[in-house]
Amino acid sequence: MDTVSGLPIQLLHDRLLVREDPDSERRSSGGIVIPATASVGHRLHWAEAVGVGPLVNAVQTGDRVLFDPAEKAEVDLNGTNYILLRERDIHAVAAKRVDDGETGLYL
């Protein structure tokens, strides 16, 4: 077991283990659920990083990451479904590490 993340596996290289947000279903501004079959274009999904490999640089455990669902590999660990990704498959990170009043941009 990985003692850092509490997961029953140790991630290698640039791999991330993420759990897809349960609230990833699309809703209109009025709160109406839009079914996935009504999707017109290619849509990215949000997930929470629950484990990161030793070569991952831009993502930490707990970060929300944006990824392409077409590039995912699913894995079941102790009855919970996770997604295994490479760091290069992550399109954006919405980190909670940015302090209030700061932009989070580095110039």
Rank of each mutant, 00 (worst) to 15 (best):
R97F: 08
L77R: 12
I34Y: 01
R19L: 05
L105Y: 14
L77T: 11
T80E: 09
V50H: 06
P35V: 05
A94G: 08
V93M: 10
V98Y: 03
V4D: 14
K72E: 06
R88D: 05
F67Q: 00
D100N: 12
D14A: 11
A94H: 14
R97A: 15
F67V: 02
R43D: 05
R15Q: 06
L107G: 10
D100C: 07
S29G: 01
S28I: 11
H13A: 15
D63C: 08
G53N: 04
V4R: 14
G104P: 07
D76G: 01
D14E: 15
L84F: 00
G62F: 11
N81Y: 02
A36Y: 04
L55S: 15
L105S: 09
R15A: 00
P54C: 05
Y82Q: 02
K96G: 03
T61W: 01
R97I: 08
L105G: 07
D63P: 06
E87T: 02
K72T: 15
S24H: 14
V52M: 02
D100E: 13
V75N: 04
E25R: 15
D76I: 04
E87Q: 13
T3M: 13
L66F: 09
A36I: 07
S5Y: 08
A94L: 15
E74A: 15
L105R: 08
S29I: 08
R97V: 05
I32N: 06
S39F: 10
A38P: 00
E48A: 06
G51M: 04
D100G: 04
A47H: 00
P22G: 04
D76F: 03
L66D: 04
L105Q: 13
L85Q: 01
E20G: 12
H42S: 15
P69T: 07
Y106W: 11
P69E: 02
R64Q: 01
L84N: 08
I83S: 04
R26C: 04
A95L: 04
